[in-house]
């Protein structure tokens, strides 16, 4: 299988202290492959090594050891950057430029003619939801959320095959987050690979096909998100929601079911059981107590629970 991003045994040490003699390992022997056409989530707590990895991939930093390839080219080959896009975390741009001028500038660096630069600028600033009246404002007057939108727009100006997004939802309000989530999903539909680092786990759950979790610079887990959450060795449980009936009677009736958890709520209850065969026992007890079934659903481990376990 060919991969669009190949990372092999990548490590990075930072030299710290006045004499720079002490070394701190920020990234430790990371090996990771990403297939084309997916949204890949790159997770980890603060200081886990996510931004360091992305900076190495962008050739902003050099690895201490290891290699990486993007689109088959070594990361030191900056000409390959004509096929990729990057939106840094908390993006900073020339604040003396207007949004339109910045896009125009980046378009020029890709060698676009004036007509193409204008077309791409208008198309992308519209796509990221930047109000047209702000296009001719200097970036020094922009809020964090507006800068984030410009950052995303500039990362797409060359119609990249892969786009690296470092905390793309940072600084956005809930509506902005939803719009950017839709934009990222749209990119995948167009065949663009998205490599995204974020702290916002709900965005990962909503968007990503595969994920990698870093802990202390090391790879803690990687794979298909659904498989990681269901095959994590955790026993699956079932949540039964009932309404009506005498809750206290019901509580006594299910007391004999091993591992069952009863939680009363107004005009009903939630009951968790570990064994699928116990569902029928609970339903029987519910009917006897005069209650009725609302729903039965398997409880999957949440990404948050999985993430906490991997990073603890």
């Amino acid at each position: 299988m060919s991969y669009i991003i190949e990372i092999e045994n990548l490590s990075k040490d930072y030299e710290v202290g006045f004499w720079k003699k002490k070394k701190v390992r920020a990234l430790d022997d990371l090996t990771l492959n990403v297939e084309a056409g997916q949204i890949f989530g790159f997770l980890g707590g603060n200081g886990a090594g996510k931004t360091t990895t992305i900076k190495i991939l962008m050739s902003l930093m050099f690895p201490t050891t290891g290699t990486a390839r993007i689109l088959g080219s070594d990361i030191s080959d900056f000409k390959m950057h004509s096929r990729i896009g990057y939106c840094p975390e908390n993006p900073y741009f020339y604040d003396y430029l207007k949004a339109r001028e910045l896009m125009n500038y980046f378009g020029e660096l890709f060698g676009f003619d004036a007509a193409k630069r204008n077309r791409k600028t208008e198309e992308l600033l519209t796509k990221v939801g930047l109000d047209e009246k702000d296009w001719n404002k200097q970036l020094r007057k922009f809020s964090k959320g507006m800068l984030q939108r410009v950052g995303l727009a500039q990362s797409l100006i060359n119609e990249p095959e892969i786009v690296f997004l470092d905390e793309p939802m940072s600084g956005l309000d809930p509506i902005g987050r939803r719009e950017i989530r839709e934009l990222i999903a749209e990119l995948r539909e167009q065949g663009t690979t998205v490599f995204m680092s974020t702290h916002i786990l709900s965005d990962i759950e909503a968007l990503c096909d595969n994920v990698a979790i870093l802990r202390g610079g090391k790879l803690a887990a990687t794979g298909n998100l659904h498989e990681l959450l269901t095959d994590s060795g955790e026993k699956q449980s079932f949540e039964i929601t009932i309404k009506g009936g005498a809750a206290e009677n019901l509580k006594d009736s299910i007391a004999g079911i091993a591992g069952a958890i009863f939680a009363a709520k107004p005009n009903g209850a939630n009951i968790n059981v570990l064994d699928e065969n116990d569902i029928e026992k609970v339903l029987h007890a519910t009917r006897e107590a005069g209650g009725s079934l609302v729903s039965v659903q398997p409880v999957r481990q949440s990404l948050e629970e999985f993430f906490v376990k991997q990073t603890e």
Binding site: S82, I84, G85, P91, Y92, L109, N158
Partner: peptide
Amino acid sequence: ERRTIYAIFSKPIG
């Protein structure tokens, strides 16, 4: 210092 260089060097610029 202002990190404007990040976006610049992600483009095909030596």
